[in-house]
Design a protein around this nucleic acid. Sequence first.
DNA 1: AAACTATGAATGAAGG
DNA 2: CCTTCATTCATAGTTT
Lengths: 223, 223
Amino acid sequence: METENHNSSKSNGIIIGGGGGSNLYVKVMTDEQLELLRQQISVYTTISDQLVQMHKSITTQHDLAGLRLGNLYCDPLMACSGHKITSRQRWTPTPIQLQILERIFDEGNGTPSKQKIKDITNELGQHGQISETNVYNWFQNRRARSKRKQLVPTTNQSEPEPETEVESPKENKTHEECDRVQFLENLSPHSIKDMYIQSPDIAGFEHLLSKIEVSGSYSSYFL
Amino acid sequence: METENHNSSKSNGIIIGGGGGSNLYVKVMTDEQLELLRQQISVYTTISDQLVQMHKSITTQHDLAGLRLGNLYCDPLMACSGHKITSRQRWTPTPIQLQILERIFDEGNGTPSKQKIKDITNELGQHGQISETNVYNWFQNRRARSKRKQLVPTTNQSEPEPETEVESPKENKTHEECDRVQFLENLSPHSIKDMYIQSPDIAGFEHLLSKIEVSGSYSSYFL
DNA sequence: AAACTATGAATGAAGG
DNA sequence: CCTTCATTCATAGTTT
């Protein structure tokens, strides 16, 4: 367990001369340094632990909607006031609105100008909550999709992209939340065993540890 | 569990006897131990970094997409195994890239000059494929859309429909969301300065560090 | 419930 | 810069 004796790097080693002439090279840390290390690691531990818990709570729950809502209605006052918060993170046109929109769309003008958008928005506002962005997006999507429909009328099933698809075959579609977390899960496994310091009480954390790859550049983080 | 009594149980200190009779007590770490520490810390760094990015991506509404692509980027094996990654015509910023871009964008200068673009591109190139055009476009779009964001602060709270939606009171989404977000935000500030080890390139991380409270029990994590 | 479909929304890029 | 398009994601609603 004695050193491999590389004395090149920082001076975290000292040479203690015995009386005779045999020098003993050891790595030295003062109590202060150890304390700092302890703090540093504890900080990492704390952060990681809590973030992991958040991560778990996010991926476990189905409430991605709530998640998304968080962005939109992140105002703590609003949220905590336990008030209304019509949690419609995504606008959905009412039948009346849709009808009007369709009519306007069929009127030909594929280009709803800015002012037009305003007018339409105002009109539709009489029939439900709506914003200009909603109208804008609607026309945007409507145009694009009506165009695409024409382009691919019935020939959709014959050419399912015979590409060199070595991608993981399935499970792309329904795992929305996985998309969000796979950047962690997909990390190639690398066993960090017998760590000098172990965090005893973080449950899912070790699982993550076993998956995180220690990139070769980690040494650059250190010292 | 192991106590924090590092003086006795865990012989990480040795007594080196000099010739005379004065003993020198020092903390000792072998290279191996140091290496393990290095790995451990780098693991924490990696995990924290990525989790922080996820956290930011979640709490910031405009970059969920970028996060998603993280899985493509983050898996070295898959990326290096060859014929993957292709089939993407459109550049998508990696989380790291996005983070850097956001930081630069937030630094005010709405005008990324030609030279600036070059620099940024070069920097981001360290974290993934990118071109100057990508950077240019990104800033272009970012600016335009952030501007448009202000234009549509539609706090439309009107009640157009017989909205009897009470959103299941027991399952308070907003509350959960708050919990998730606030667990970081609410941590009492504690300055971790002059850390023995610093991670140079994690931007938002230091901000978090300044907010994380080092709980008094951190010593229990250590040894 | 899980899978599917329709569609609102986000965003990189192109044109002017 | 502004507008527009193409692509993709995420979700609400529907079907099996």
